[in-house]
C-alpha cells in the first residue's frame, strides 16, 4: 500500500513555482480563482487557457500527472454538461425531440463551464498542492492569517492542528491497515455483502482506531508539554519565510491576467450566462 498518497499530490521538483514563498502562492491561487470567474466570453477563455498552459509549463509537472489529477472531476463535468445541454434555453434550436430541446447556446455553455472547472483545478493545484508541501502550505497560511490573532482567532492553534493532522495521517493509515489485517485474520469480511453490511463491517475497525488515536493524542500532548510547549505566544520559528522578487512577479502576473480578462470581456461575442 502506498502511504504517500495521503500526502496530497505534492510533486517534487525545483521549478520557480516550487521555490516560491507559500504565502505568495496562496495569494496568487486565490486571485487566479477570481480571474477564472471573471472570464465571460470566448476571448477571455482563450487567455485563461493560455495562462493554464503557461502555469503547467513553468511548474515542470508532467502533463500526465496533471491529467490524472482530473480523473475524479469527470463525473462532475459530465453532470454539469448534461444539465447545461438539456436545460439551457437559447435562440438557435439544434435538436427538438418531443420534450427534449437542445440549443447551440446550451452546448457552448456546457463546454465553457467544463473548461472553467478544469482551469480552476489546474490553477489551484499547480499553485498549491502540486508545488507546495502540505507543511509549507500550513506555515504560509498561519503567517497570512496571523493578523487575525488580534481579533482573537486561534490562528496558531489551527495551524498546529493541521501540522499534527498531516503528521499523523501516515501513522493512522498504517494502523488502519494493521487493524484490518487483524480483523481479516479473525474472519472479518470487508468486501462482500450489501452496502449496509459492508458499512457495518467497518465498525470493528473504527472502534480500535479511535481508541488508539485518543491514546496517541494523550501521549503526544504530554510529550509536547515536556518540550515546553505553551501555545503560540513567545514561540519563534526556525524557518522564516522570505518573499523574493519572483513572488511579486507572479502575483502581479495574476493581477494582469485578471485585468486582461476584464478587457477581453468587453469585446463581446457569446457571453457565458453565469
Amino acid at each position: 500500500m502506498n502511504l504517500d498518497i495521503s500526502f496530497g499530490q505534492y510533486c517534487e521538483g525545483n521549478s520557480i513555482l516550487h521555490r516560491m514563498d507559500p504565502r505568495a502562492k496562496i495569494i496568487a491561487a486565490i486571485m487566479y480563482i477570481v480571474a477564472v470567474f471573471l472570464a465571460k466570453n470566448l476571448y477571455a477563455f482563450a487567455l485563461l487557457l493560455l495562462s493554464a498552459i503557461f502555469l503547467i509549463a513553468v511548474s515542470g509537472i508532467p502533463l500526465r500527472i496533471v491529467l490524472k489529477s482530473m480523473k475524479p472531476l469527470v463525473i462532475i463535468l459530465l453532470f454539469t454538461a448534461v444539465i447545461n445541454i438539456f436545460w439551457m434555453e437559447g435562440e438557435t434550436l439544434l435538436v427538438s425531440l418531443g420534450f427534449i430541446q437542445i440549443y447551440l447556446e446550451g452546448i457552448i455553455n456546457a463546454i465553457l463551464i467544463a473548461v472553467r472547472i478544469i482551469i480552476l483545478l489546474v490553477g489551484t493545484t499547480i499553485f498549491m498542492t502540486f508545488t507546495t508541501t502540505p507543511i509549507a502550505l500550513t506555515d504560509g497560511l498561519e503567517q497570512l492569517l496571523s493578523p487575525l490573532k488580534k481579533i482573537g482567532l486561534p490562528v496558531h492553534e489551527f495551524s498546529m492542528m493541521m501540522t499534527i493532522a498531516l503528521r499523523f495521517i501516515p501513522t493512522l493509515t498504517e494502523e488502519t491497515q494493521k487493524i484490518m489485517n487483524a480483523q481479516k485474520a479473525r474472519g472479518a469480511d470487508f468486501s462482500t455483502g450489501s452496502l449496509l453490511q459492508r458499512a457495518k463491517a467497518l465498525v470493528p475497525i473504527l472502534v480500535p482506531l479511535f481508541v488508539s488515536a485518543f491514546r496517541r493524542a494523550d501521549e503526544l500532548a504530554t510529550a509536547m508539554e515536556c518540550r515546553c510547549y505553551t501555545g503560540g505566544d513567545g514561540r519563534t520559528r526556525m524557518n522564516v519565510l522570505h518573499a523574493g522578487a519572483m513572488d511579486y512577479v507572479f502575483c502581479i502576473l495574476v493581477i494582469a491576467l485578471g485585468a486582461g480578462i476584464l478587457v477581453l470581456n468587453q469585446f463581446g461575442g457569446y457571453m457565458l450566462s453565469w
Binding site: 518540550r227 510547549y229 519563534t236 520559528r237
Partner: peptide, 13 residues
C-alpha cells in the same frame, strides 16, 4: 519544535 518553544532567534535555532 522544542527550541522554537523557548523563543530563541531563528539563526540560533
Amino acid at each position: 519544535f522544542g527550541v522554537e518553544n523557548l523563543g530563541i532567534p531563528s539563526e540560533k535555532i
